[in-house]
């Protein structure tokens, strides 16, 4: 049964230095407030996992939380580069960042394998690209039935999975809808999980197309209204496109990022 608690207590309970931590949300329901709480608690040496390390990981990387990044697309969607990510990869600032790079199809399947209790997933992927040469976690595999050569990627089972959702009830059952990305997979694949929600309600209403994760699949729930900003929570907020553009300026140099970071801490 999920414990309903504050964001700072929940983060303190689930995230430890050196952990492998996945904050997910595919353009929608991104747990940005939780990422900033991890910065505030000064966690270090994390292996950060995320398909699209956008603003939330640019912030955590710039703050020096990460030792390694496992990802498939690192940009500011619709705007351009992630400057803190680039500074870390190109100049090792503020600390060197090891990378393990995949495609979206590969990352999604790695979470599926993790959620399924399997050691790896099979897909038609990466064929003819240079990714397998640089990423150890991409290997060929021969189908035992047809002899066809396909691609295998190992399961992702993070120590901690964190997502944002629209609602939880008082028993910690969580409901989310709209673009749901890999929310279900990352919670089920992770050893410990935290879901931040817009609102804790008495009863979850039946909502076509919504996903419900029973409270017993989740360790901690924290009510954090607006916790996905500048991404959004369908039914509660709109994507703050102006902030994504503004982040380009804030993150561009170390000094302006430093001012932003001081404000968070």
């Amino acid at each position: 049964m999920a414990t309903i608690t504050t964001l700072s207590e929940a983060v303190a309970a689930v995230v430890r230095d050196g952990d492998t931590v996945a904050l997910e949300g595919f353009t929608h329901l991104i747990p940005v407030a939780a990422g900033q709480e991890i910065i505030r608690q000064r966690r270090r040496d994390l292996t950060l996992v995320r398909m699209t390390p956008d603003i939330v990981y640019d912030q955590m990387i710039g703050a020096g939380c990460a030792r390694k990044l496992i990802f498939s697309w690192a940009g500011n969607p619709g705007v351009g580069s992630l400057h803190r990510f680039r500074d870390a990869v190109q100049h090792g600032w503020p600390v060197p960042l090891e990378i393990e790079e995949h495609s979206h199809a590969g990352m999604a399947n790695r979470y599926v394998a993790g959620a399924s209790g399997l050691p790896f997933a099979v897909l038609r992927g990466y064929a003819g690209t240079d990714l397998p040469e640089h990423t150890d976690t991409v290997k060929p595999i021969t189908c035992p039935f047809t002899g066809e050569v396909l691609t295998a990627v190992p399961a992702l089972n993070p120590d901690v999975g964190i997502v944002h959702a629209q609602q939880a009830d008082r028993n910690g059952n969580v409901q989310f809808w709209g673009i749901t990305g890999v929310h279900k997979e990352v919670v089920l694949a992770s050893r410990r999980s935290l879901v931040t929600v817009e609102e804790v309600v008495d009863t979850l209403s039946v909502r076509p197309g919504a996903t419900v994760l029973p409270g017993w699949t989740i360790d901690h729930v924290a009510e954090v209204p607006g916790g996905a900003h500048p991404s959004y929570a369908m039914g509660y907020s709109d994507r703050d496109n102006a902030y994504y553009r503004a982040w380009d300026g804030i993150s561009r140099d170390r000094a302006s990022f430093g001012e932003w970071l001081a404000g968070v801490r």
Partner: peptide, 14 residues
Amino acid sequence: VRLPGAGGAPEIAA
């Protein structure tokens, strides 16, 4: 220069 990376493109192209 570090660019964003693959995203969905390798499998879209395939």
